[in-house]
Computed example of a mutant assay.
Amino acid sequence: MKIILISDTHMPRMAKRIPPRLAEELETSDFILHAGDWQTLDLADELSRYAPVDGVAGNTDPPEIEKQFGRKKLLTLDGLRIGIVHGDGTGGTTPGRALDAFKDERPDLILFGHSHIPFMEERDGILLFNPGSPTDKRRQPQFSFGVLETGDGDPRPRHVFYDSKR
């Protein structure tokens, strides 16, 4: 199973359309997970043309996105338990807040966003993954998203980096 991991798209403010490098991977995806800050439900509709979509709302999303997706989620895809949370809040670090959100569930992987900073680190047997942003790199050198391919013995996401969102 090929799962595309995205966050912090902030569309249409930061991009009027899905960046070509992301669209290329979406074409062969089986599932899409979004860790918040979509901005509009139109993006969920657009992504669903590629594959089934799920995710959570972020701190800048309107109420209708939170109503549809919620703020925290635990899914099982192809035997992998994936926690999703945006990671905003106060105190600590964004990865720390994401880990704390699932302290009782202990998923295999926690997908989070908020910082727009690509991140992958294992803590206490749980893999934390922030895909960065495909449309708003802020102070990062490149735009990014993640790809998770299951089916092998140790599914690990990877970052995909690129220079232009056009």
Score class of each variant (00 low, 15 high):
residue 101 A to M: 10
residue 90 T to V: 13
residue 122 E to A: 12
residue 91 G to L: 01
residue 96 G to N: 13
residue 116 H to C: 14
residue 118 P to L: 11
residue 89 G to D: 06
residue 151 G to K: 05
residue 94 T to R: 00
residue 129 F to V: 11
residue 153 G to I: 06
residue 134 P to A: 15
residue 98 A to N: 12
residue 99 L to Q: 13
residue 158 R to N: 09
residue 146 G to Q: 12
residue 106 R to S: 10
residue 113 G to N: 10
residue 91 G to K: 00
residue 144 S to Q: 08
residue 132 G to S: 11
residue 88 D to G: 08
residue 128 L to F: 14
residue 150 T to L: 02
residue 95 P to Q: 01
residue 119 F to D: 06
residue 152 D to L: 05
residue 110 I to V: 15
residue 106 R to K: 12
residue 157 P to M: 05
residue 107 P to N: 14
residue 116 H to L: 15
residue 150 T to F: 00
residue 134 P to F: 09
residue 152 D to V: 04
residue 125 G to R: 08
residue 117 I to K: 14
residue 89 G to F: 14
residue 129 F to H: 11
residue 158 R to M: 13
residue 131 P to Y: 12
residue 98 A to C: 10
residue 132 G to T: 11
residue 130 N to S: 01
residue 155 P to T: 07
residue 90 T to K: 15
residue 162 Y to E: 08
residue 111 L to W: 03
residue 104 D to K: 13
residue 139 R to S: 08
residue 120 M to P: 08
residue 85 V to R: 03
residue 131 P to N: 11
residue 114 H to S: 06
residue 150 T to P: 07
residue 150 T to D: 03
residue 148 L to N: 05
residue 132 G to N: 12
residue 121 E to N: 14
residue 81 R to M: 02
residue 108 D to Q: 05
residue 114 H to D: 15
residue 152 D to Y: 09
residue 145 F to R: 04
residue 113 G to C: 13
residue 88 D to F: 14
residue 163 D to H: 06
residue 104 D to Y: 12
residue 91 G to E: 02
residue 153 G to L: 13
residue 101 A to S: 15
residue 129 F to L: 09
residue 143 F to S: 06
residue 137 K to N: 02
residue 106 R to V: 04
residue 159 H to E: 03
residue 100 D to M: 07
residue 158 R to K: 15
residue 124 D to G: 07
residue 143 F to V: 06
residue 99 L to D: 13
residue 90 T to A: 14
residue 156 R to P: 03
residue 89 G to R: 05
residue 155 P to K: 06
residue 147 V to Y: 02
residue 136 D to A: 13
residue 93 T to I: 08
residue 92 G to F: 05
